[in-house]
């Protein structure tokens, strides 16, 4: 299953290597990793997405905590959270087919951020499936995709909702500590 971890790590040289090395050691591929400054001075926030067995979540989180530079780790696989990804997509486009790309961008609520005689650049924000969808449509319409640059997932827990709201959104409520330990909390799709 896909595991998503949010980690606060000290903002200093070598920390990324330590975190990445932990996954390498377990022979787990990191699917996406985003790092940036956080609200805490001196700490960066990472969102790490990795494909690993269902049981691996507990061990990865426990192992991340063993790194001296890691201050906090949250396993938010299957927890009510907002996930976003940013993508920049450069497509081949000239005067004849530009308008089609504009239309598509409109439908996907994306923005055109650069326009050159032979290409256009689209900026899109959203969940992974939305970005995949745009790329897919662009490919089908033979708008040749020249470059794709994706930020990787950024995730933040939602604030406290009532359980009814959560149910309506189709996401599980906060797991109890025992759920967390056995990591049996089901994964769920992010609503858009």
């Amino acid at each position: 299953m896909l595991h998503t971890f949010v980690a606060y790590v000290e903002d200093k040289p070598g920390v990324l290597t330590r975190v990445a090395s932990l996954f390498r050691r377990l022979n787990i591929n990191i699917i996406s990793l985003t790092v940036g400054r956080s609200e805490r001075t001196g700490y960066s926030r990472m969102t790490i997405v990795a494909e690993a067995s269902d049981q691996a979540g507990h061990r990865i989180r426990a192992s991340l905590y063993k790194l001296e530079d890691v201050a906090e780790v949250d396993d938010i696989s299957g927890i009510s959270a907002v996930t976003r990804e940013l993508a920049l997509i450069k497509v081949a486009a000239n005067a004849e087919n530009r308008s089609g790309v504009f239309e598509l961008a409109e439908v996907f609520r994306a923005r055109i951020v650069d326009l050159a005689p032979e290409s256009m650049m689209i900026e899109i924000t959203g969940v992974e499936s939305k970005i995949e969808g745009l790329i897919q449509v662009l490919n089908e319409r033979e708008n040749r995709v020249l470059e794709v640059c994706r930020s990787g997932k950024m995730t933040m827990r939602r604030g406290h909702h009532t359980s009814r709201v959560l149910r309506a959104m189709g996401v599980s409520a906060e797991p109890s500590p025992s759920d967390r330990e056995s990591n049996e909390s089901p994964s769920s799709e992010e609503p858009e």
């Binding site: 049981q55 507990h58 061990r59 426990a62 192992s63 905590y65 063993k66 330990e181």
Partner: peptide, 15 residues
């Protein structure tokens, strides 16, 4: 003492 050892090699009933 090391939480990363729990259920690593052998699944346990009480940790």
């Amino acid at each position: 003492i090391d939480p990363a050892e729990i259920n690593k090699n052998i699944a346990v009933d009480v940790a």
